[in-house]
């Protein structure tokens, strides 16, 4: 049962609005170690310099999209066991299936409530105390 303070999250989205929303949600849950990145490339840069154990990433981003980021993370030994939750628009079944094949831990459909965000993280890490 992890505490919120055990989780160090990285939010990846090209949209400031979504980054802010996820950040606000995470804080509500008690996760305060949060980094931001604006696309997959940016995210990798952060991942290589900060100790992150949970990535919450959008799918459609310029430069390197969420799927590309997921694959890069899973292919890099030091990063491979980082939790990865993909943000998607509604009903994007195909995308989630692809992400699943590449080893995504969970998905989160936009728009989401704090309760859903919490549930999706807990499905990966167990209940957060």
């Amino acid at each position: 049962m992890p505490a919120g303070s055990d989780i160090r999250a990285l939010i990846v989205d090209d949209q400031q609005t979504i980054r802010s929303l996820v950040r606000a949600g995470l804080k509500d849950i008690g996760i305060h170690n949060i980094e931001d990145a604006v696309d997959g490339e940016d995210a990798l840069r952060v991942l290589l310099s900060a100790r992150i154990n949970l990535i919450i990433s959008d799918f459609n981003m310029p430069k390197l999209d969420g799927l590309g980021l997921l694959r890069a993370v899973r292919m890099t030994p030091q990063l491979k066991s980082t939790g990865f939750i993909m943000l998607t628009g509604r009903a994007d079944t195909e995308l989630v299936q692809r992400a699943q094949q590449f080893g995504v831990n969970n998905y989160l459909v936009k728009p989401f409530t704090v309760a859903t965000l919490r549930a999706k993280i807990e499905e990966v890490y167990g209940a957060i105390t």
């Binding site: 299936q97 831990n105 890490y125």
Partner: peptide, 26 residues
């Protein structure tokens, strides 16, 4: 119409925080 994702058998994957990745040396 569909507000939620149709059920297609997605199973979230559990991770334990004990698997904390070693910090990467750049």
């Amino acid at each position: 119409a569909g507000d939620d994702m149709p059920d297609f058998g997605f199973k979230p994957m559990l991770i334990s925080l004990g698997d904390d990745p070693a910090p990467l040396e750049l």
